[in-house]
Amino acid sequence: MESPLYLALQEFTVKAQADKTVVKMLRDWDRMIHIESTDGDSFTLSVADRRVTVLEGLHAERDIALVAPSATLIGVFTGALNPAREFAAGQLKFVGSNKDEMKLDAIVQLIWG
């Protein structure tokens, strides 16, 4: 059975692929994004050739990592939680460059408003 976090990530990738602006933003932005749950399964969001796919486990060398409890990660990827607040509260860790952080946040804003 697929975990709630996996389903949340799948939902996120579907929404990302359906948004033309997001797809445009993914041009020349091939990244391996580790989604590291502190209390459950971890996944990798692979961004390559403007396509986002969810992979089980932590694959290859990561460019970005998001580390948080599963509930926080699910909340962030379903739009139920504000990632900036979780980050400021110390619930969500971001590892990566400033530019990647801004780009990911811009994508989240485009999808969830």
Binding site: N82, R85, M102
Partner: peptide
């Protein structure tokens, strides 16, 4: 970035959280 982060948290007006979609800067 401080202004941007506070706007993203909802502490400052939302307009301050806009990101440039080409340069990815606030």
């Amino acid at each position: 970035r401080l202004l941007y982060a506070m706007a993203r948290e909802g502490i400052l007006p939302k307009a301050l959280s806009r990101v440039h979609l080409r340069f990815f800067t606030p």
